[in-house]
Simulated assay, not measured.
Amino acid sequence: MSRMLEEIRQQPEALERTFSGGLRGVEKLRQLMRKRRPRLVVLVARGTSDNAALFGRYLLEITTGIPVSLAAPSIATLYQARVDYRESLVVAISQSGESTDTNLVLERAREQGATTLGITNERSSTLAGLAEHVFLVRAGKEKSVAATKTYTGQMLMLYLLAWALEGGVRMPELERLPETVESALRLEPEVRALSERYRYMRHAVVVGRGLNYANAFELSLKLMETCYVVAERFSSADFLHGPIALVEPSFPVFAFAPAGVTWPSMDETLAKLQGLQAEIVAITDSGNREVDARATRVIRLPRRVKEILTPIPYIVPAQIFAACLAAQKGLDPDQPRTLHKVTLTL
């Protein structure tokens, strides 16, 4: 069994530790933000952490009403531009805390007047030393190159950040997320069997919308880095503005399809894909039965999940699928070719 799959299975305990261990720091930041509420939040990250940041953008704007921007690190690292970060909260997200460009952006932002927060899995990292405030992801050492438990830990920390900014997030619901993830892990035998069908898959599309748009990016990344599948990712709305033309009969499309406000748009996209005879694999929960009429195959969480809480449990069967597909292809997801756990870029 791969380390990737082992670490996927560790997520309920990792999320419990992250939640309980972070409460004091989150409450401290909440008190500070009441006095110095930011006019803007800027998120800076790379790789899987950047996908967590994309999720954070949707979550924070939806729940707090504060505008959120995703930083372009090259503005600071290559163009040496000075940005006015006064009255802003700049949040750097990094599994290792050693991403060179992410840390440089945070350092410059602090010099230019921002309140700074670091979200990392490494207590003694450079990022933890640079940031004024630190949210520690307590996932334990992540040994596989493919990030899994640190991704969901970062997402949980972004929920806690939304709470600190007095957004519409309920702590008792967050506290129950590890239990929901535990139920998602019970889908492993079903997902493993499904992965056999896609052993020879070389191209795919992943679609999501709203809060699950980031999960489309994350599943796509996992398919690319662990299975060497060319996986394009789109918003279900953007997909209709041109990229749908690449779909032909039996073309594999993976869709995150919760019930709620994003479902009508996703339903429209899936209906068109169905008309093109695409092979659609939908990830959903017991709250959405309509998707059965659209998808070729459905991966369904056994419990109904509120849309705002779906991103963490929904990514779990997607992670399992990538790990199992890599095994089907005879690949090692823990050591993808040319990749390392820490990537240093400017």
Rank of each mutant, 00 (worst) to 15 (best):
A128L: 12
E166W: 14
G168V: 00
E98D: 04
M157P: 04
G168F: 00
S96W: 05
A162S: 15
L89M: 11
S99A: 07
T150I: 08
V91Q: 02
E132M: 01
I119S: 02
R199P: 05
S99Y: 04
K222H: 14
R108H: 10
V137G: 12
S125D: 08
L160D: 00
G129E: 06
N103K: 01
T152M: 12
A162P: 15
L106E: 00
L174G: 12
G118V: 00
W163H: 09
M224Q: 09
A214T: 11
F217G: 09
E190S: 12
L89F: 05
K143W: 09
T180H: 05
N121Q: 03
L177G: 13
A216T: 10
G153K: 00
T152G: 13
V230R: 14
L136S: 03
G118Q: 01
K143L: 12
E188W: 09
E107N: 09
E173H: 15
L177A: 13
R186G: 12
A164L: 05
Q154I: 02
Y159R: 00
V137Y: 11
L223P: 12
R123M: 06
I93N: 02
N121V: 02
N121K: 01
T148C: 13
A193P: 11
P172Q: 07
S124I: 02
E87L: 14
S99V: 04
P172A: 07
E98M: 06
L136M: 02
V134N: 01
L174H: 03
E132D: 02
R170H: 14
S144T: 13
L117I: 01
V191R: 14
L117H: 01
E188A: 15
E218A: 13
A204H: 04
I93F: 03
M171W: 08
G113M: 04
G97S: 05
R110C: 02
T120S: 07
Y213W: 09
H203G: 03
S94D: 08
T100S: 06
A162Q: 15
S144R: 11
A109N: 08
R170W: 11
